[in-house]
Design a protein around this nucleic acid. Structure first.
Lengths: 209, 209
DNA sequence: ACAAAGAATGAATAATGATTCACTGCTTTT
DNA sequence: AAAAGCAGTGAATCATTATTCATTCTTTGT
């Protein structure tokens, strides 16, 4: 046994992996998953195409990791916003608002995560994460029901509707086909976010605020 | 000029085109757009693959026609349900309920139209049609506002949320990955439809019914 | 019956880009 | 310094289907 993996090597490899992930993220944030080419990613990361396959099974696998990491970050932010003090309705409102605002701030990545047509493997990940969002909302809804600020009905179903309403409302504005000519002003964005939040809160509580 | 297109020929061609469309529809209803192969469609329709290209520019174009026809039918049904006598809220409720029920009756086609990952050209069609749904809802919402049974706010935004909420609520149950083992009973379906409708109506009117 | 025009055919092609793998060269141990 | 093992390389391969087009078959008008 002449060669054995040493700490230095482990770190060098980890560093290469990190660069690959970083550059993939960049490519996706720039043009979505579909247009992110392995050769381009390798070029940016300063490695050969083959090297990518020493770190990831396949392109799909690489993308799946990017997708998971990026989406998990969003899910965490939602969870965090739902985990502040205050009544459930307000917390839900804040979470929805922050989610929409972040999406509008990084539109291409948001579109890729929410609505870009992707291969079945990624689509499955997407379903999982939509459920993850819904589950956080669901918990907050149940808390709201317990607190009495939300009337008692199917929390799970309502949470799914929440996810759908916000996603659908964002798809149009985020869509790259339209986003070119039709970029929203700050005022537009605020109006959009307000309307989404109002519908959702009303859908939950049954009351205007 | 020895050969001139005659009525008989025109009809024969139209018939071939019709069969191609019909068989494409079948293939899509069976496994979605992605898995519908030109060779298979040609085989079913009893023509050579090349013949398909005498009737359609490309596979995408053929699919686009199927997509448009199928979706337009759904849009029309929604429009029809919204165009009955009665107050706006009831009409909206019926339209939503019927839409969801039809989707659950033909799950694969519904999934293809609503959520299957498709090429950008089809995705664009999908956006157009989602807008079409939303516009019908929007009109009904405005009528509701005029009638006084829906409080006055951004009808357009609400209609988008409606479309999103119902689509999202159906994606899970329709998804072919899950739909296999996890097929819903009639009771489940009814419960699902009821919950969707309740959330939506409440989101619109701000009141439980 | 014949020629002209189109329609239909389907085997061959083309295009695309992910993936492979035989080779090079670097690290480590003795 | 020499051997052993692993990491990196990137040109070549592969796989997949939509699409083409030279050819054959049908229809029509004279």
């Amino acid at each position: 046994m002449a060669y054995r993996e040493t700490e230095k090597m482990r770190q060098r490899k980890a560093e290469a992996r990190r660069r690959i992930v970083e550059c993939t993220y960049e490519c996706v944030a720039e043009g979505g998953f579909r247009s992110a080419r392995i050769t381009r990613i390798a070029g940016l990361a300063g490695v050969a195409t083959g090297t990518i396959y020493r770190h990831f099974e396949s392109r799909e696998d690489l993308f799946a990791e990017i997708f998971r990491t990026a989406t998990q970050k969003e899910v965490d932010k939602v969870a965090e916003a739902l985990d502040t003090p205050g009544d459930a309705t307000t917390r839900l409102e804040n979470a929805l608002r922050q989610f929409a605002e972040r999406a509008l701030r990084g539109p291409m990545m948001a579109w890729s995560l929410i609505a870009e047509p992707v291969d079945p493997k990624l689509e499955e990940e997407r379903l999982v994460y939509r459920r993850a969002y819904a589950e956080h909302f669901e918990r907050a809804i149940r808390e709201g029901i317990a607190e009495g600020c939300i009337p008692d009905h199917d929390a799970r179903q309502s949470s799914t509707c929440l996810v759908g309403a916000i996603a659908e409302s964002l798809v149009g504005p985020l869509s790259p086909t339209l986003a070119g000519q039709n970029s929203l002003t700050e005022t537009d964005k605020n109006r959009l976010v307000d309307s989404i939040v109002r519908f959702c809160v009303q859908g939950l509580t049954g009351s205007r605020r």
